[in-house]
């Protein structure tokens, strides 16, 4: 959870909800239940155009990962890129955070949603990102 500081904070992406209870939100198709993190025109699964706003579960399982050693300038390496599946069945891409040794990442490991400050802009605004830490 982000520190309670005076700095203004913005989420790194719109589907990250900050505040006292940070979590992810998704656009959920009212016809078929498919979930999306981006702005939608229609549902890629069923073509429906109705969406509701849904909360995504915090607990997840690591389904796929890669330990990235070669990245664009400015990105600290190595980091563990991951595809997790939340306990309500939503796939999310992020990093596994909080591992002392990236090689200890293990397929099937249980992880939990968390947030942290990943940068500050020239106005002093903090950017809050999310990741998944071993549960």
């Amino acid at each position: 959870m982000p520190d309670e500081t005076s700095a203004e904070q913005v989420p790194i992406v719109g589907y990250l909800q900050l505040g006292d209870d940070p979590h992810l939100r998704a656009n959920e198709c009212t016809a078929c239940g498919a979930r999306y993190f981006d702005r939608r025109n229609a549902c890629a699964k069923c073509g429906g155009t109705g969406f509701s706003d849904a909360r995504v579960a915090d607990a997840a399982v690591l389904k796929a990962y890669s330990i990235v050693h070669n990245a664009a300038p400015g990105i600290p390496v190595p980091y563990v890129s991951a595809i997790v599946e939340t306990e309500d069945g939503t796939s999310v891409r992020s990093n596994v955070v909080g591992l002392d040794d990236p090689m200890t990442a293990e397929l099937g490991m249980r992880v939990e949603f968390t947030t942290y400050v990943c940068g500050t802009d020239d106005d002093g605004t903090e950017c809050v990102a999310f990741g998944y830490a071993p549960a």
């Binding site: 992406v13 589907y15 702005r39 890669s66 990235v68 070669n70 890129s81 990093n95 950017c127």
Partner: peptide
């Protein structure tokens, strides 16, 4: 996605490997 910065390396990887 209303991203405020590049997410590559923060929200997982966009690199091909």
């Amino acid at each position: 996605y209303d991203a405020v910065t590049s997410i590559d390396g923060i929200l997982g990887t966009e690199t091909m490997p």
